[in-house]
Amino acid sequence: MGGKSGIVTNEVGVKRFDLQKLLTAASLVLLLVFFMTYGYFARGLDIASFSVNILESAYYIGFLAIGVTFIIITGGIDLSLGTVMMCGALVGGTAFNTWHLPMVVSLILILVTTTLFGLLNGFLVARLKLPPFIATLGTMMIAQGFGATIANVQTQRFPTMADEGGWFKQVFLRTQDGVPVGIIWFLVLFVIAFFLLNKTRFGKYTFAIGSNAEAARLSGINTQRWLFLIYMVSGIFIGFAGILYAATFTTVIPMGGAGLELQGIAAVVIGGTSLSGGSGSLSGTIIGVFIMATLKVGLMAVGIPQQLQTLLIGVVVVLAVMMDIYRQNSANRIKS
């Protein structure tokens, strides 16, 4: 019975989901068009730099969101995204500034740090069976304190483009001539993530664990091991978010980063991935990321103060969650 109804739910879910994705994509286009036209005619907005601004706001939220999409599909959550990203960036900055390591090594240390935190989350959730919410709430604070400790509570400044070591900005963010090369990394990592989720056993098991972890385990999947891996993969993506954050904002403050996880999670939710697990998509997440980035940059560009921006983005998140619940309810109705 469990299997059968599960399939029905899935099919209904998929159909509804596509409609929702269409709607979210349409609203993204609408938002872009609105901000660009209004900005262009009413405020003399430079469309080219506006677009680049959106891209650059999308990078780090995007990597956070891509990583956490896997986790959310398993029915889990990761609250440590933001502070782990900052922790990685702080470790990288300290490595470069205080330990005088080359930039390459510093960047690798960012990835290593966030991956280790991914492993820690995986260990707590998969092995010790802690609820993901509680486990990652803990690592959120651990990462915040750890990063600040490593950095000796000093603000870490990455080199600017012209400085020694500033090449990493030209590789990851934009070249001296302003070509936004970050988009390449974004696309490449998105394609890798897409492949992982949709074409591999890793992805199949991610969905399976989210739909029904017990059923997955009974059908012979080593759920513990895969869950562990999923959190680790998410950690790697957080590392890239950290690199892009450092490239975009140069200065990383200790004890920061709390609150950024919610931007990543919000993007995933807007993209239609269900917080109850078992369904979701990376293409939806990307649309969600760009909706978030467009709102952030667009509202700023038309002169809405920050507090109202936050308010409006909050409203969008609530609407997205309402859609998610509505979808589930109607799916349940059909099931019964």
Binding site: G39, L45, D46, S49, M300, A301
Partner: peptide
């Protein structure tokens, strides 16, 4: 919120 201020400057520059 250094990052927010950077975003604000970017938004301002985009208005020429």
């Amino acid at each position: 919120e250094i990052n927010v201020q950077v975003d604000m400057i970017n938004a301002a520059l985009a208005q020429n």
